[in-house]
Write a protein that binds this DNA or RNA. Sequence first.
DNA 1: CTAGGGTTAG
Length: 589
Amino acid sequence: MARSLFSFTTQRSLLSLLLSSTSLSQVLQLHAQLITRALASDPFVASRLLLAISEIPVISSDATTYADLILSRCPRANTFIWNTVVRIHAAGLEPRRAVVVFRRMRQEGLDTDSYTYPFVLKACGLFLGWEEGGQIHGDVVKKGLDFDLFVTNGLISMCCRCGNLASARRLFDRFLEKDLVSWNAMIGGYASRGEMRQAQELFDEMPERDAFSWAIMIDGYGKKAMDVDSARRLFDCLPDRDLVCWNSMIDGYAGVGRMDDARELFEMMPTQNVISWSILIDGYVNHGDPKEALILFQQMLRQGIRADKVCAVGAISACAQLGALDLGRWVHFYLRKNKVLLDIVVQTALVDMYMKCGSLDHARMVFESMSDRNVISWNAMIVGLGTNGHGEKALELFFRMEREGAAMDDLTFLGVLSACTHAGLVDEGLSIFHRMKGDFGIEPSIEHYGCLVDLLGRAGRLAEAKNVLDTMPVEANPALWGSLLASCRVHRAVDMAAACVQHIAELGADDSGVYILMSNIYADKGMWEDVWRTRRLMGEKGMKKESGRSVIEVDGVVLEFVNGDRSHFLMEDMLRVTWCLSEMCTSLG
DNA sequence: CTAGGGTTAG
């Protein structure tokens, strides 16, 4: 009936348009046209709409909601339609919803077939829903689908992803019609958990191998088992290496900090993609060379490779480590200009970067604009506010976090406690420390005790601080005694300071810094005999003062200062610093 | 009528 409302040819052209649409808004426009013609409830039209959605490269939450809507408006939906909705959810941001749709499908008495299970199982593997997967497994056996290649491969990889290697292996061994994918899934299960002995055994046994098999093994040895040399031996055996193999091998080296080896392969590989660059950039960021990371980032852009959000996170954290605000803002601007979708990871990296660069307003702006926040985002704000000297604001944010019922972890408390310390909010800090276990279920670690000692010590409540160290459930370490020692200097408590040094020495951690601090405490009090005695002791122990080092960004240029070393200090840099300082002085009036 | 499984970077 509905069909007679508009001509067959118009319908056909609409449908062919649908098949070639590449964005949700295009699909929506077409749907609107179809709705006005009262056609959307037609199963055939619904299936076309859903197929169009499933072909969008990135399934947004709008897309999944829309798929649910189409399903609900289509009373005569068949198995194909339901399968497609399950598939859309499995590819979306919340794979769990695929299982929800699957359950409704069964409740409403629809037939499930060999196309239903691979998608549901994939979803289970993605959110690690082994419980649900186990039930589905029973279902599959009842339906006699456990001999279907796709269904069984789905089961094997679901079991592997959920860490149930024994079940996966049972399925694998009993399955006589195994293909290359079955082998790769099983080997991947072992490799992703670093069980390389078992993976290697199967790898040697398998009838044929493809690029995936090699990539799985190289990645398993390099990243998961931290055995880069074995990974390299396989890599060298491999006749024609694809991009993934190169990247996995480079990532293996970067993961263990062998940046020279990583770099050498990077230069050798035939072509690099944005992932290759990201691996290298991240490697430098994680192994103490953020400056090199930024140089690479700029090189990559110059070669015409667009940065994606993963790569940007590397660059942003390099900026954070360097305190390079101008560059960080530039990366932020780049992402906006290139319409790169800012997800929670990028936004959190930006918050962290702005905080580390001391730009609280920008950090706050990004944080407030976030539609979703996790514990890492909150921590970045709380820790950042604390280290920038805004203890009250950090505390405020902590209470807001509590009100909103956001999950906290041990870093949250390290952040808020040290914020209290620096703002002199001693009683507030104490109260939070004492609520940690009861109200938030987080057992204080040795670091939290460190904060407590600091909190009390800096406020001059030295006896209470020492009492914490003497009575805490785990034994205090040199760092904790060191923190009390630092408080002793501030409050000129010579005797307690000497006791701290004693403890540190007993723990075998008495480095030059400890004695220098101690001798400074004596000096503050004019106890020169003790100063010289301490200096002599240092000489006897063969200690020398170590050099300090710092890095700053001035006017877009990153400068590195090493105490006692002026070689980096070029005249040009000197001029920039001078200019910058004079600018600042002028603006301060 | 139509569709499907395995690898790589935070």
